[in-house]
Structure formats: C-alpha cells, structure tokens
Write a protein that binds this DNA or RNA. Structure first.
Lengths: 188, 188
DNA sequence: GTCTATATTCGGATAGAC
DNA sequence: GTCTATCCGAATATAGAC
C-alpha cells in the first residue's frame, strides 16, 4: 500500500471515531506510521486529507448500499436488506457523523461527499418504492420520496439512539419499527 | 441572571453549535462575558460545566416534547404534533448531537442526560401507540416499542439528512414519510 | 468572587537538511 | 520523499493578588 493510501485510510478511521475537529494531523501520522514531513509532502494539510478520506468513504458506502438495494426479491425485500444489513451500530455511520461537524458543513469540499451520498441513497430507495407501487406490490398511498427519506432517517437516527444508550438495541428497534410500518403497505 | 446561569446558558449554546470537543473554556467565558477566574470559581472545569449544561438542555427538551405529546386529539394527532413541531432544523438537536461525541459518550456523567432523554421519549411515544391500539384508533399489527423508536429515529436522522443537504427539506420529507406510514395504521 | 499572570501541552503548520 | 527543527497560537488549567 502506498503512503498516500495509508494516510487516507488512517484519516478515514480517525474521522469515523473522533470526527473532524477531534482529529489532529499528528494523530493521523502516528496511526499511519508516517512522518510529519511525509504527510505534508503528499497532502496540503488537514482539510485536503479529510476531503480525500471522505470521498473514499462515500464511494465505499455507496457501493455497499447499492448491493443491498439490488438484492434479489421485491422492493420490500431490498429495502429490508438495506435496513437489516449487519452494522457496527455503536460506531455509527462514517458519513452521517460528519453532518454534525460545523467545520465539515461549512466547507463545500468536505460537505459534498456527504450530501451526494444521501442524495443518491434517498433517490435510489424512492425509485424502489415507486417501482413496487407500479408493480402492485406496494399500496399506492404513500409518497415514494418522503418514504425514502424516512427510511434513510431511521438508520441515521437509529445510530444516534444506540450511541446515546450505549447499546445497539434502540437501533434494532427502530429498524423493526420501520419495517413493521412498511410491511403494512404490502398488498400481497 | 446569576453568573452561573450565564455560564450554563453559554455552554448550552456552544455545545449545540460546536459540540463538546469544539467548545473551549475560553470561548464559553467570552460568550458569557465572564472572566477566567470566575468560571473556575463556579465550576471545576469544562466537564463539570458541560454536565450542568446538558442536564439543563435535557430538562428543557423533555418539557417541550411532553407538551407536544399531550396535545389534544388522538394518539396519531399527538405524535404528529411532535413530528411537525416547528424546529430550527439546520441547527440539529441539542441532545442528539452529543451522541456523536466520543468524549461525551465515554463519560457517564455526560452521557446520562442524553440517554435518559431518549429513553423517556421512546417510552412516552410507545405508550401513546399502545393506547391508540387499545382504543381501536390504530391497527394492532405494529409493535409500540419498535414504532416509537422508529419515530424518534426519524427526527434524529432527519436532522442528519438536512444538515448534510444544507437545507431543511430532507427533514420535512422524512417527517411526512413517517406520518404517511403511520396514517395507514389508522382504523378510522 | 473576580482578576491577572504563568505553565504545559497540543494543533497545525513551515523550513530546510538529507 | 522523508526527517528534524522550529514557530505561533489555542486549549485547559493553576496560583496568588485584590
């Protein structure tokens, strides 16, 4: 692995754990086993490195979610596959976490991967809901866009509840709750 | 207002905006218009002050939510009142935000108000759902505890989506989505 | 109770040698 | 490309005067 890659991966890990404000260049260097000069040779500074790390995390997350949402089965099955995916719940979401950091939100370069990830995710789930309705699998009563936003919000909010509680259970409850409400839309 | 109160209110405001890691004692002093020595006379340090601020925020939040959830009308109406309450969406949740901060989660004194707020909120909403089912207003199919967790998660996740997007709309979509799914449970 | 002075470490980087 | 030296301000206090 290249020095750049190790720096990016270390930054991904530290941003996930400590957030942007809580992650120092020195901590990144130590985690990556890379010297000061080396880091500043490859990257302009902390914001530059964070931007690279966030772009990579966004790409990876999208890949995983895309797979869940194209799983075999009905629209409901695919959304359930996304919601039920095995997660490290107490760690939270690598991307969603960044939405809380004012320095990330204030910098368009840093916010862009976060915004795009959620835009894509909501749109993809809305598409599935709409397809399910057209296919007659889901009742036509609910709005696909709104429903998709609710599904994504349940996951992001589930992380918040779980971390607040110090245990994964509230996340799992929220997911079951969402699936219970969604199941009532099935026409079968 | 006493010096203590001004310090607590300033800490509440700064924790909301910048989080725990991002809030310095100096910033608190300046925001409160209080000197260094004065702050350390009244509080042992940053964690002590933050604990006082979080306890107060938790108490206030609970008061507001309790009012929504006891509004006139059916169980659905009360949950809708909670979900639709006018919020400063892009600022996020004063309490939920803390769940992302590792230093808050690691300190039992700081985590307690956060955990208790969400425990109470989920329990109160679960109670409403169960009452609605018993009264025949809501279909008996969904689990009250799980549904309540989903409702609270939609709000917390809605904040994440809105901040990521830089606009309030995704929050409002998520709320409408949740209400749409919940409305389908009404037997009327 | 409040103020000013002082201390230590960290954050975030630049400079220049190798 | 990588290393070490150096810089300046901020974070988080403690000490002691008023």
């Amino acid at each position: 692995m290249t020095t750049q890659d190790r720096l990016i991966e270390s930054t991904q890990a530290l941003l996930w754990e400590r957030g942007y404000v809580g992650t120092s260049p020195k901590a990144i260097q130590q985690h990556a086993g890379v010297g000061q000069g080396s880091m500043y040779h490859h990257f302009a500074g902390k914001p530059d490195l964070a931007a690279a790390a966030l772009r990579r995390s966004a790409e990876q997350l999208r890949g995983v979610a895309a797979a869940d949402l194209s799983a075999p089965g009905s629209a409901y099955d695919r959304i359930a596959a996304y919601l039920r995916r095995d997660r490290d719940v107490l760690r939270g979401c690598r991307i969603g976490r960044m939405a809380q950091d004012p320095d990330v939100i204030a910098d368009p370069e840093l916010r862009a991967p976060v915004e795009e990830t959620f835009d894509w995710l909501r749109a993809r789930i809305a598409e599935l809901v709409a397809e399910g309705q057209v296919a007659g699998e889901l009742a036509p009563g609910v709005d696909p866009t709104d429903t998709a936003a609710a599904v994504v919000a349940v996951v992001q909010g589930g992380y918040v509840l779980a971390r607040a509680a110090g245990r994964a259970e509230p996340f799992e409850q929220a997911v079951r709750g969402a699936l219970g409400l969604l199941a009532a839309q099935r026409t079968a």
